[in-house]
């Protein structure tokens, strides 16, 4: 994959070595704490060095993650984490690039980028913390919110069916699709590590409860269960499984075999030489 790993014999880093001393502002009880923990565990498992990892995000609760790590971080504008990560990875294929997002940032304002990042299949790991709500703007419905969830902005519910990120990822060409649960940071860490190892665009949807605006999501812990069958590499079977599962199947659900996006240029001409074509 061309990614840098620790030299053999170099001291292994612990998860805490990937955690910065800047304190998260998430609400106590928020699933995102756990996802942060899972990311740091995954990076330790992968024996990466913080300076060779970039964590890119947009705007929202989940997108605060970069600064909470000791990796290189980029906290950009709302919805545009994937393009930033795409540019970074295309220009610097040697880096391990993780992208953090939420259901509002990633599926609504950044929805178009999601489709095209899946399709482009760069070797990125896209971690979306899905809590079915806009938390940072105080509880508006997001693309994954249930149609009957009532809120100030949509009294009585939106009446709109939920967006199905995993199916969309599959249809758009993502090469690895997993669902994780924040309440299981170790399992989540293992899934993230596997996603990083898998070539191409890896999508990890993390069910990450919002205890402030969706306290009922604490019940998710009783609803999640390991995916009953191993990941398939057949998109047709994966589509059927993703379309019909209960939304709480946790594990790797699809592992594709598409080659990752690779740039096909290693030109070494000088810029001066390019002037020839203009000479009259």
């Amino acid at each position: 994959m061309g990614q840098r790993v620790n030299a053999p014999g170099a001291p292994m880093l612990a998860p805490k070595d990937f955690k910065s001393d800047y304190k998260p502002v998430w609400c106590p009880g928020c699933g995102d704490y756990s996802v942060l923990s899972a990311i740091t565990k995954a990076l330790a498992m992968l024996a990466l060095k913080p300076e060779n990892v970039a964590v890119v995000s947009g705007i929202g609760c989940s997108s605060r993650i970069p600064a909470y790590t000791t990796c290189y971080g980029f906290h950009g504008v709302h919805g545009r984490a994937l393009p930033v990560a795409t540019g970074l990875k295309a220009a610097r294929p040697d880096l391990t690039v993780l992208v953090a997002s939420g259901d509002g940032d990633g599926y609504s304002i950044g929805g178009n980028h999601f489709l095209h990042a899946c399709r482009r299949n760069l070797d990125l790991t896209y971690i979306v913390m899905d809590n079915h709500v806009y938390g940072m703007t105080k509880g508006q419905p997001s693309p994954t919110t249930e149609p009957d969830w009532s809120s100030k902005l949509a009294p009585g519910g939106t009446g709109l069916r939920e967006f199905h990120p995993l199916v969309i990822a599959l249809a758009s060409g993502a090469n690895f699709i997993a669902r994780a649960y924040s309440g299981d940071p170790n399992g989540c860490a293992a899934l993230i590590a596997e996603a990083v190892r898998h070539p191409g665009f890896s999508f990890v949807e993390v069910l990450s409860p919002c205890v402030t605006f969706r306290p009922e999501q604490r019940e998710w812990k009783t609803m999640v269960h390991p995916a009953p069958v191993a990941a398939t590499d057949d998109p047709g079977r994966a589509a059927r499984r993703l379309m019909t599962d209960d939304g709480f199947n946790v594990g790797v659900l699809y592992k594709g075999k598409r080659p990752a996006y690779a740039r096909a240029n290693g030109g070494n001409q000088t810029v001066e030489a390019l002037a020839c074509q203009f000479r009259a």
């Binding site: 980029f74 504008v77 545009r80 393009p83 930033v84 990560a85 795409t86 540019g87 970074l88």
Partner: peptide, 10 residues
Amino acid sequence: LASINMALGA
């Protein structure tokens, strides 16, 4: 929106 952010990322 993507092109400017890709440029920023790179």
